[in-house]
Every structure is written in C-alpha cells, then in structure tokens.
Design a binder for these strands. Sequence first.
DNA 1: AAGTAAGAAATTT
DNA 2: AAATTTCTTACTT
Length: 89
Amino acid sequence: MTEFEEKILRETCKIPLGEVRTYSWLAQQCGRPRAHRAVANALKKNPWPLAVPCHRVIRSSGELGGYSLGRRLKRELIKLEKKAKDMIK
DNA sequence: AAGTAAGAAATTT
DNA sequence: AAATTTCTTACTT
C-alpha cells in the first residue's frame, strides 16, 4: 500500500453521508489534480470495501463509474444514503 | 512495458 | 446536439 493510496482512502472517508465526489476531486485533495486515473486504481483495490465508502465516488460526468462489489449495489447504496440523509435532517 | 472503476478533446453521426 | 473514438493522465504491478 503506497502513501498515495492511503491518502485517497482517508479522503474518501470524509465524504459526508448521502453525498458523492468525483475521481478528479479526490485527486485534487491529494495534491495531484491530474492523477484521477490512479485514484480509481487505488479504490478498486480498497481492502475495506464497506469501512471506506468508495461507493460515494462517481465520475465527473455524473455516471456511476465502477464498484468492486457491483455497480448495482453501488447505485442502491447511494440511493439509500440519500434517503437516510433526508430522514436525519 | 502494460493496465486502470477517468477526462477532455476531436471526430463522426 | 449526442454518441463514439482517440489521446493523455499519473500511478501500480
């Protein structure tokens, strides 16, 4: 595990409930604005699929992107978290 | 050297 | 204007 990957994962954990960020956004948070591709690489081999909310990371075009546990689940999780957010507020 | 869960730009439809 | 192709990106293996 490289430092870059760890940074990515830590930033991913900061994404609030019911919200999403893009791959390039994460790249910027780590000081490498053009490393979006490497970000995807780090997330796909995320060792803790649920502990780190990598399902809150989507493409900048608004599309889902991929997910190690299946894009379908990813969609469901985001939907569910939006609901949860509404319920809490 | 090759591959990637991306992106922007150029190209075609 | 939307869909598809092509090249670039930076990082890992």
